[in-house]
Every structure is written in structure tokens, then in C-alpha cells.
């Protein structure tokens, strides 16, 4: 943790900024103001939902690295059905249908790598990752072609038509926080319970302990892995829907260099640093969401190039994860003594 601060301080100094002020700004903008909190939660929501979804196959030690692609497919499906139905059904129905389609979209994207792993042994880390590449360019093609909005076409921007305002997810009354946050919290609690107290969770844990003991225990490993990936992909899809319906309102392309929007990747450390505990994921996603948000504000205030900000953000993330995963248990032990 300290190492992370030192290294990022060096970067601040490089840009003629007091490291202390730099870090303070980062945290202040992330967590210090009401407005900062709003923005932080905006970043948190997709991270939270994706990480909850990832915790399911991760429990069985099935490594789904494809949340980004599943997230994108969720966005695409939700936007497509939303634009199609917006005038025919009431807003609430539109949101529910969009969420359902987002789940389907994410799940579809999770199926091919899962089947490849279960029936031919292809490494899921590679195949899920590859599916991300396909998704990124599928989205780029859609928003600059078939799904490009009329407005966007005029200015030549790659984006879809906006979801009508009345169909968007409402804000929590009295705040500027999207109700997507509540969806995330609900999912976290539900999956905390599922993983801890149901037969499904029990079987996933056994699978994670090893194929031998799982098959000895009479578990249908293939079926449960498949199910866990459907859930994981589907939830990542819902994250995509919540992102479009709660934050951006249009489909916009995403690239790999654009870490800020690659929630699918950042979700992986969020899930892992919380030891796959969905309640822990709530806090971890708020923390990383805050740093992400703080980094953006820094760019605006001090006109540090975005690349540097993202570098700093990455460093802080790496070191804080190392810190949390290695130091925290020790600290707790010391404190108990």
C-alpha cells in the first residue's frame, strides 16, 4: 500500500504537483463530497454487479475473464429491445424486458467458451478473453452501422439513438444515484445467500475443491459449471443494461485502451480481493469506483494527461489490492493480539 503511494507520488512530482495534494484530491474527489459520492457510485454500479456475477463461477474455480464481452452484449440486447419497444409498452415493463434481454445476451456470450471447456477442454481463460475482442468490434460495427442513431449519423459519431428519458432507470428519490445501485445491492445480497446457504453454492464450492471430490460426491460438474456461467454472463449482461439505462443512455463503443469503461476487467480484482464474498464485493467496488472517479476529476482539475491519471489509477489499484490481500489479514491478527 505504502509502496503504491510512493510510486504514484513519483508520478505526481513528475507533473509538478505535490504528491500529498494529489492523493488528497484523489480521495477527496472520490469520497469527500456529496457530488463526489454520486460520481463514485456511478462507477461502482457496473463494477459491483459484474463482480457479483463473477463470484459465482469463480467459486467453482472456473475463471470467467469474459465479463467485458458479456457486459457489452447485455448493453446491445437491452438497447436494441428498449428502442424497439419504447413506444409500445409502459416504462416499467420496458425496463424489465430490457433487463431480461440483457441477461439473455450476456448468457449467450458466456455459452461458447463454457461448452468448449466442458466438451473439449479448451482453457476457459483464453476463450472467454477472446470473446471480449469479438464483442468489442461487434459493438463498434453496430453503433457505426445498423444501430447508429439518426443524430449520431449527422455528426458522424459512433453511437446509437438514446433511450427515451422516461424509459431510463429512475434516480433514488432525493439523490442523484441511479436505482441501478439498489439492483446491485439486491444481487449482492441474493448471491451472498445463494453461495452460502444453498445446495447450488455447496456444490460449486466442492467443484472448486477439485474435480475428484466433486464427482465422488455425485455432483454433475458439467451442469453446475454451465449454470454458473449462464448466471455469470447474464448478470454481466444486466450490468450492461444498468449502465446504459442508468448512466450513458446510448450505446457507445468501448476499446481496450479505455480502461475507465472496461468494468469487465476491473470486476475481476474486485471479486477476488473480496474473497468472492458478495457482501465484501459491495465495499471493494465502492472503493475502486472511488479511485476511478477521483482519477477522472484529477484530469479535469490539474490538466494531467488522462494516460498519466490512468497509470496512477492502475498503480493504486494494484498496490491496494496487494495491500488488502496480504496486509489486512496480518493487521487483523496483530490487532486481535
Amino acid at each position: 500500500m505504502i509502496l503504491g503511494l510512493l510510486v504514484s507520488s513519483a508520478f505526481f512530482i513528475l507533473f509538478r504537483l505535490s504528491p500529498f495534494i494529489g492523493l488528497a484530491t484523489l480521495l477527496y474527489e472520490g469520497f469527500g463530497t456529496v457530488y463526489g459520492w454520486y460520481n463514485t457510485l456511478r462507477m461502482t454500479i457496473p463494477l459491483l454487479i459484474i463482480a457479483v456475477g463473477l463470484s459465482v463461477p469463480f467459486t467453482a474455480k472456473f475463471w470467467n475473464i469474459g465479463a467485458q464481452g458479456q457486459f457489452i452484449l447485455g448493453e446491445i440486447f437491452a438497447t436494441w429491445i428498449g428502442l424497439l419497444l419504447s413506444k409500445c409498452v409502459p416504462p416499467l415493463a420496458d425496463i424489465i424486458i430490457a433487463m431480461f434481454f440483457a441477461f439473455i445476451g450476456g448468457a449467450i456470450w458466456a455459452i461458447p467458451p463454457t461448452v468448449m471447456k466442458l466438451y473439449s477442454g479448451a482453457n476457459e481463460i483464453i476463450t472467454t478473453l477472446m470473446m471480449n475482442f469479438v464483442a468489442v468490434y461487434l459493438l463498434l460495427w453496430l453503433v457505426s452501422g445498423p444501430m447508429q442513431g439518426a443524430q449520431a449519423r449527422l455528426v458522424g459519431a459512433p453511437s446509437s439513438a438514446p433511450i427515451p428519458a422516461q424509459d431510463m432507470l429512475p434516480l433514488i428519490p432525493g439523490t442523484q444515484i441511479s436505482t441501478g445501485f439498489l439492483i446491485g445491492l439486491a444481487l449482492a445480497i441474493i448471491f451472498y445467500w445463494i453461495l452460502k446457504y444453498t445446495e447450488f453454492g455447496y456444490e460449486l464450492k466442492l467443484i472448486g475443491e477439485g474435480e475428484q471430490v466433486a464427482s465422488y460426491s455425485g455432483i454433475n460438474i458439467k451442469r453446475q459449471i454451465f449454470l454458473s456461467m449462464i448466471i455469470s454472463g447474464g448478470i454481466s449482461g444486466i450490468a450492461g443494461m444498468v449502465y446504459v439505462y442508468g448512466i450513458t443512455s446510448t450505446l457507445i463503443p468501448q476499446f481496450f485502451s479505455d480502461i475507465s469503461t472496461s468494468f469487465g476487467y476491473v470486476g475481476i480484482p474486485v471479486a477476488l480481493m473480496s474473497s468472492l464474498n458478495p457482501i465484501g464485493i459491495i465495499f471493494a467496488s465502492i472503493f475502486l469506483g472511488g479511485i476511478l472517479n477521483g482519477a477522472f476529476v484529477m484530469e479535469a482539475i490539474y490538466s494531467i494527461p488522462i494516460d498519466v491519471v490512468i497509470t496512477i489509477y492502475g498503480l493504486i489499484m494494484i498496490f491496494s489490492i496487494i495491500g488488502i490481500m496480504f496486509d489486512l489479514p496480518k493487521l487483523i491478527k496483530r490487532w486481535k493480539r
Binding site: 455447496y202 456444490e203 464450492k205 466442492l206 475443491e209 477439485g210 475428484q212 471430490v213 460426491s217
Partner: peptide, 21 residues
């Protein structure tokens, strides 16, 4: 160790491997 029990789980989790449904 690899088949008879899930090594990383508590004993009470391991007590119902064949009755966990």
C-alpha cells in the same frame, strides 16, 4: 485427501458429501 474430502473446507461441510441433496 483428493477424493475422500474437500481438503479446503470445514469438516462439517465434508460430513455430507454423499447426502448433500
Amino acid at each position: 485427501l483428493t477424493r475422500g474430502v474437500a481438503a479446503g473446507l470445514a469438516l462439517y461441510y465434508n460430513s455430507i458429501l454423499h447426502d448433500h441433496w
